[in-house]
């Protein structure tokens, strides 16, 4: 299993400009059209037997399976446990990464001291820790939570260190010359300079933690979307399996869109790249 998001290095440079304005007209219609064509093609290929229907059930069957699931009680429970673990992971990883990053960014000796540890732990693919986690934490949702926090923590930590150091020297001089307290300087100058870095990091951490929660559910068998995917496969219900894959994908798209919106609102209200 490939986890592309994990392989990506953490961003060093924040995006100065907000995402281009929301696509309109053709920009919305064209992708929808492409999606419709792909679904129709898949349907045609499986119906005509070009693709084996037992591996690739027609899109209509997947849709029907999804409708059945939507009506059942387990679906919402399943979705709820995946989403809650995922959100909890973000709620832990982002503040933790920010706090630790702030300290490491400001106190250079501590950062120099801990850098080898960070550089050793950071590249470890979180999935490689699954056996260890099963042994130590067990097979509960806490294991998925730990893996998701572990993976997204680094994605926040590194930009947080860069961000707290990105405050402009003149802004820092201003804080000094007006005798800001340490707390005032942190709040008004350095945390603010971190925000664009953190916004990007949070967006990345959002995808990463979803990937890890679903992976942990698949491999460890923790109740959630991932578990339903493997369960459906093992009982030979391919349509239901695809239904849950679709749900995982949609969940990713929705949360990514939400975080992106928050990010844009933040950039606009902070006048970063908002000149356009």
């Amino acid at each position: 299993m490939v986890l592309p998001t994990l392989a990506r290095p953490a961003p060093r440079v924040p995006r100065r400009r907000p995402a281009p304005g929301r696509p309109r007209g053709g920009a919305v219609l064209l992708p929808l059209l492409a999606l419709a064509v792909a679904v129709a093609l898949q349907e045609a290929l499986t119906r005509t037997g070009v693709l084996p229907g037992s591996y690739f059930p027609p899109a209509s069957q997947t849709a029907a399976a999804l409708l059945v699931e939507l009506g059942g009680a387990t679906f919402w429970q399943t979705l709820g446990s995946t989403v809650s673990t995922w959100l909890l992971a973000l709620l832990i990883a982002v503040p933790l990464g920010t706090a630790v990053g702030t300290v490491l960014g400001l106190v250079r000796p501590v950062e120099a001291f801990l850098r080898p540890v960070v550089e050793f732990l950071r590249p470890i693919p979180s999935v490689a820790l699954i056996p260890l986690v099963v042994l130590t934490i067990g097979t509960s949702a806490r294991s998925a939570l730990f893996l998701a926090v572990f993976a997204s923590f680094w994605q926040v930590l590194v930009p947080a260190i860069a961000g707290v150091r990105s405050a402009h020297p003149i802004a820092l001089d201003t804080a000094r010359s007006y005798s800001f307290t340490l707390w005032q300087r942190l709040r008004w100058v350095q945390l603010a300079a971190m925000l664009p870095h953190l916004a990007t990091a949070t967006r990345l951490a959002t995808s990463t933690s979803l990937i890890l929660v679903v992976t942990a559910e698949i491999i460890i068998g923790i109740p959630g979307l991932g578990h339903e995917i493997t369960m459906s496969r093992s009982v030979g219900n391919a349509a239901r399996m695809y239904a849950y894959i679709v749900v995982s994908g949609v969940a990713g798209i929705v949360v990514n869109a939400v975080v992106k919106r928050l990010e844009r609102a933040l950039f606009v209200s902070h006048g970063i790249g908002a000149q356009a």
């Binding site: 020297p169 003149i170 802004a171 006048g271």
Partner: peptide, 20 residues
């Protein structure tokens, strides 16, 4: 160190304002 009763207007004034 910066005395409390001093104020500075920097040449690079734009950077001395908090943009947010």
């Amino acid at each position: 160190g910066p005395p409390r009763e001093f104020a500075v207007v920097f040449q690079d004034y734009a950077r001395s304002l908090m943009p947010w």
